[in-house]
Design a protein around this nucleic acid. Structure first.
Lengths: 159, 159
DNA sequence: CCACTACAATTGAGTACGCAAGTAAATCTA
DNA sequence: TAGATTTACTTGCGTACTCAATTGTAGTGG
């Protein structure tokens, strides 16, 4: 009868715990493969992928940070690594000399294609292990909305 | 026409990206509150909570690691912090002298109760921002299954 | 009873971040 | 057009982990 009150669980708490656990389990598995086979972290990969899809294969660092949800300093350090590896380069902006573009190199494009082959297959396999395609679409939708809610500043308390 | 192949997205990939993003967004928000108001990380809190619910408020470190999905060394370091703060103590095991129990102290129980008040409310608020209660139950269920799939060793390639 | 393997936990070294503070360029204000 | 604010980015420092190696204990087969 001591800690019993702590056992009451709202669906939100259940969902939160499941989010933390599933993230840990999924990323642990996938990042092992990505780092062993390709020398990339998950965020490295996400960044390369977004650059590959961006017009002119370039993006402002700030925008990149917003997409992968890293802080500006996190992006700086992540890109340091990708620069050292030769996968991205720095590009200056004519109209605003504060901004530094991250530009995907040919080597970077080759890398993300190479990594995609095994990585995407592994994601498919892992997610399909217990979820059918309808459930997959549903969970993707719900998690996107959850992420948007949490990333929005407007759900912050007023003060 | 260059990187176009990288734009094809399975539902699994969409779900994966949404998982990573929503996790980053949600944990960033919640951990700010937990660390500022209570000096705990999310994993600190999860560990204290599981100890509070465990019989005799004690658990083997290995089992704790399995529940919060940390490595053994991760648990050691996390518990170091909680010991220093006086929230857990070490307990020896009569029948197996390899194991060291993590035992929740009275101060630890008080702490987790205190933290729960605001933390649970914030989780509820954040998750309810864009998801109704049916959706919450659904996403919790789907994420639990996903986490189980990824934590299971039996979905590993044979070799 | 002794060697082997298996397991619980810890430790040293390394990494991927975050935060706070700083610089430099752009923009707004008076 | 000078000064103040905002924006883009970087840097120093701290932290929460991970992995690989190590110690000590338990079971197991000969």
């Amino acid at each position: 009868m001591s800690a019993q009150v702590l056992s009451e669980q709202s669906s939100a708490v259940r969902a939160f715990v499941a989010l933390v656990r599933s993230h840990a389990a999924v990323t642990r598995r996938l990042s092992v493969e990505l780092t062993n086979d390709h020398g990339l972290t998950i965020n490295d990969y996400e960044v390369l992928l977004r650059l590959a899809r961006a017009p002119d294969r370039r993006m402002r660092r700030v925008d990149l940070a917003g997409e992968v949800l890293l802080t500006p300093s996190g992006i700086t350090r992540l890109l340091d690594g990708l620069e050292r590896a030769g996968f991205v380069e720095r590009g200056t902006c004519e109209s605003d000399r504060r901004v530094v573009y991250a530009v995907l190199t040919d080597a970077g494009l080759a890398k993300v294609r190479e990594a995609s082959a095994t990585h995407v297959a592994q994601i498919d396999e892992l997610f399909a292990a217990r979820l059918d395609s309808r459930e997959l679409a549903r969970i993707a939708d719900l998690m996107e909305r959850l992420g948007d809610a949490a990333a929005d500043d407007d759900c912050r308390p007023p003060e």
